[in-house]
Design a protein around this nucleic acid. Structure first.
Length: 479
RNA sequence: GCGGGGUUAGCAGAGAGGUUUUAUGCAUCGGUCUGCAAAACCGAGGACCGGAGUUCGAAUCUCCGACCCCGCUCCA
């Protein structure tokens, strides 16, 4: 049974989908007014991993993530950079796509863009107006919060308290200070679209509701985003959707924690962010994934150089053993099968146990920290096995490999490894060199044997002399 | 002010009343292996913010205090 923490109820709940085996999921995507930074990545990675896990558990996940490309912040950038909003959007959208790909984030089923849905948003707002939940005022349209009695249920706020702190409370166009804008009257120099209320542009909170119900239906399983979206964005989404349908909008609300740097939230507005493009110049995507996923998705992560360096080392180490297993699976023929020894049996048990433990950890609100603990413990057992067993058992190796594949599929790690294994001839050559070197070693010709080992290392092949056998693995070329 | 969350070894970070061990990773120290390496493995040290309470038993529950972060304004 999968348990999932629901922001709405503020507790763990059993995960049950509306349609058996299917998940309808809307993830609030970024506003494309800048480069993707680690904060965005954390959110994307957290939900990507949850999605991957659900798929691993054989759910069919319909995952929709929007890009917000028309909004106050977009206009700000457009003004500052003196170019069209569309141009800004195109550039950063491309940037996000590129960075998301680098981080091996799975493609969404669809990535709707707000700007391509203006007409539908207008229709949506008109429906709200027709039903009396929205009102027009001097070209603006506002949502009438008093008409929605559950307002504040997600962020656990009382209306009075929200009121006290609403910055825009003095806006004379509003009936009630906490009402929020659905449509904004056009201002000079800003993009606008026609509407029944005159030319203008949509507010921020309608697009997600509209696109969510457009692509997934009125009632969905999961709606997710950063904790900073709880209020007002998601609160406002609930107000719109539920007042219109009179039914619940979303079953499970998921919110990820922030990335902190120097004990402060990493954010665009504070300017203390680390861009993904920049980060990936120094660290592998796998290290970044591991860094992020070693922390539970709802906890804050402390980012510092030490921590990310550690993740890089850990990631490389894990990769080594996975790669080693791959090499063995490739070179061990089924005909090599020998009897199952006690050590083999022991490891088979560990494989089974590791899989169970992994699932148990992940079932508990997607506890990737514990998930990784299982992976590392298993990796240690495998390293031990390979070096102490007399004869490598092809069947055991294959099972190890399969389990690593499962882990990798959930965590999205090391997926470009095929390139390491393209040519069988290379493998034969390596084996040949190892044999020649062994001859030299028998003759105690250390000079030649070391030369072979060192030169191989430079080409990206590392040898390891263990008592039982010589291991080789492909690493990065040092040339 | 209102509403969340947090404080666990050098660092990162799980655990949410109970067996000898507060997981896991990195780092440190020692060992095994090796012709030497490298890697791997084995082992060790070291932490539950402070105080009071509940309990046979608390890192975990309650209360008080300190400090920190976050939301209530754009944010993932």
């Amino acid at each position: 049974m999968i348990k999932i923490y629901n922001t709405l109820s503020r507790q763990l709940e059993e995960f049950k989908t509306i349609d058996p085996g299917k998940v309808r999921w809307y993830n609030c995507g970024p506003t494309v007014n800048g480069l993707m930074h680690l904060g965005h990545a954390r959110s994307a990675l957290a939900f990507d991993t949850i999605r991957r896990y659900l798929e691993y558990r054989e759910y069919e996940v319909n995952y929709v993530m929007n890009f917000t490309d028309i909004e106050d912040r977009m206009i700000e950038v457009s003004k500052r950079e003196k170019r069209a909003v569309l141009e800004v959007a195109e550039e950063y959208l491309r940037g996000f796509r590129r960075d998301m790909k680098s981080l091996n984030l799975k493609d969404a089923t669809i990535n709707p863009r707000a700007m391509l849905h203006i007409n539908q948003v207008v229709d949506f707002i008109r429906k709200l107006e027709e039903k009396g939940f929205a009102y027009e005022s001097k070209g603006d349209v506002y949502f009438d919060i008093k008409k929605f009695k559950d307002y504040g249920k997600l962020s656990n706020q009382k209306l009075e308290n929200i009121l006290e702190n609403t910055e825009d409370a003095e806006n004379p166009n509003k009936r009630y200070p906490a009402d929020f804008a659905l449509w904004k009257n056009k201002k000079p120099g800003e993009p606008y679209w026609p509407s029944p209320w005159g030319e203008g542009r949509p507010g921020w909170h309608s697009e997600c509701v509209l696109m969510s119900s457009l692509y997934l239906g009125e009632f969905i399983d999961i709606h997710s985003g950063g904790q900073d979206l709880i209020f007002p964005h998601h609160e406002n989404e609930i107000a719109q959707a539920e007042s219109l349908t009179g039914k619940p909008f979303v079953n499970y609300w998921l919110h990820n924690g922030y990335v902190n740097i120097d004990q402060e939230k990493m954010s665009k507005s504070l300017g203390n962010y680390v861009n993904i493009v920049e980060l990936l110049k120094y660290y592998s995507p796998d290290a970044v994934r591991l860094f992020v996923l070693q922390t539970h998705y709802r906890s804050p992560i402390s980012f510092n150089e030490d921590a990310i360096n550690q993740a890089q080392i850990t990631s490389d180490r894990l990769f080594d053993v996975i790669l080693l297993v791959k090499s063995y699976v490739m070179e061990t023929e089924e005909s090599d099968n020998i009897e199952i020894s006690d050590i083999d049996k022991e490891l088979m048990e560990k494989i089974k146990k590791a899989r169970e433990d992994f699932i148990e950890s992940m079932n508990e609100d997607f506890n990737t920290s514990n998930g990784f603990a299982v992976v590392f413990t298993f990796a240690r057992d495998v390293n031990d096995y390979i070096r102490k067993i007399d004869e490598i058992n092809a069947i055991v190796m294959k099972e190890i490999d399969e389990l690593f594949d499962e882990f990798r599929s959930v965590f999205g790690l090391y997926e470009n490894m095929d390139s390491y294994h393209s040519i069988e001839t290379v493998e034969k050559l390596i084996k040949l060199l190892i044999e020649i070197r062994s001859e030299f070693r028998k003759e105690k010709n250390w000079k030649m044997s070391d030369k072979i080992r060192d030169d191989l290392k430079k080409t990206g092949i590392t040898l390891e002399d263990t008592p039982k056998r010589i291991l080789w693995k492909l690493t990065e070329s040092k040339e």
